[in-house]
Design a protein around this nucleic acid. Structure first.
Lengths: 198, 198
DNA sequence: CCACTAAGAGACATTGCGTATCCTAAATTC
DNA sequence: GAATTTAGGATACGCAATGTCTCTTAGTGG
């Protein structure tokens, strides 16, 4: 019984191709069902494989979820373009984060419960491992503003430098939804710029 | 066999007394085990009762967890005292939150995963239901500062008014631990006060 | 004192977990 | 390109927790 129509025509995936499919399936489950209802069984079924294959790669549910998140984020990096002014750069950055990260961030907080406890890590660690070694996202923006002489370097503490991103993130965490354009402008114009402009 | 030593000497709790014991047990489980390992079984055992009693009151695990959190927070309100200056008031407020809310907040974020999805609520809603009808915690602090003429009322947008608390919360959410004293001072002295002082 | 409510014990089917075993398709080696 | 090794995929197992029910009995109020 080697040829029974389309059923036996399936090929057996391996290595990276399989792993990608597993992580995509995990991500889909995560977004559709949420972490609590996220089951290894469902991921295996959706990926057209069996649980054993998943357990060979990840110890359990939190690690699989985390891997899925990192995988998805890595495929969709945020680029910060030069708009010609600090204000424009920061607004562009926040808008982009709004478009490309809100769903992920929402999943992330609303989810990953126990993972932190089990591993002793925190949201901050996860944020770090997601942004990779590329350093704080604000770096490029700030560097250009300093070149242009737009900001008072003496006021630029690390905390103030990250203020727009931190406030944006706080907003997303609190509401679990995209941040309104007015809020972005408010953060930039009434908080960040007054603190750093020369 | 009505008298077998101490075993039958137990009394059967009812109403509020029982409910309090259930919520205390739930809270203890939550803090000791984390939300993911939080089981109705364990709560029932710890409270010396059976699951049926819990299911009679709450539909399931997320609702019980939430009820336990609200219960604990309600027993330990934050009071904001008058220290004589805006700076002192805000610092005192953050310090108190640091002492009395960090464990709870940590539980809270690291936990309650699916509840939001299931009910369509968010962290912001939970924050609201926890702070009760008493309004933003910064209100009293701001009112006194306005009386003293310490702040420029025109700069006082709602967002800026809540900035210290929001940044504090963000810090806790990110690190899952208490906020260092220096960070509290930094938030107040390099961000909040420069934005509002006349 | 009687009737009613609800506490507490326990049984039940169901579901997800994590492990182990087996077979075979794909990759690797000679 | 055949032989060998690796790992994918199916299946079954025991375990733990869920949520539902039933039953007995302790406390409460009339």
């Amino acid at each position: 019984m080697s040829l029974s129509g389309q059923d036996d025509a399936r090929t057996r995936r391996r290595g990276p191709a399989l792993e990608g499919a597993l992580l995509d399936a995990a991500w889909a489950e995560l977004t559709e069902r949420g972490y609590e209802s996220f089951t290894i069984d469902a991921v295996a079924t959706r990926a057209g494989t069996s649980r054993a294959v998943l357990y060979r790669r990840w110890p359990g549910k939190p690690e699989l979820a985390r891997a899925a998140i990192v995988h998805v984020v890595a495929q969709d990096p945020i680029e910060v373009k030069d708009t010609g002014s600090l204000r424009g750069d920061v607004i562009a950055l926040l808008r982009q984060a709004n478009e490309r990260r809100v769903r992920i961030a929402t999943q992330l907080v609303v989810s990953l419960a126990d993972y932190y406890r089990a591993t002793g890590t925190s949201l901050a660690d996860l944020r770090e491992s997601i942004s990779g070694g590329q350093g704080p996202i604000m770096d490029g923006v700030i560097a250009r503003a300093l070149e242009r002489g737009e900001i008072d370097a003496s006021r630029l503490t690390p905390r103030i430098r990250n203020l727009p991103v931190d406030l944006f993130r706080h907003e997303v965490l609190m509401t679990h939804s995209a941040v309104p354009e007015e809020t972005i402008l408010e953060i930039v114009d009434t908080i960040f710029l007054p603190l750093v402009l020369a």
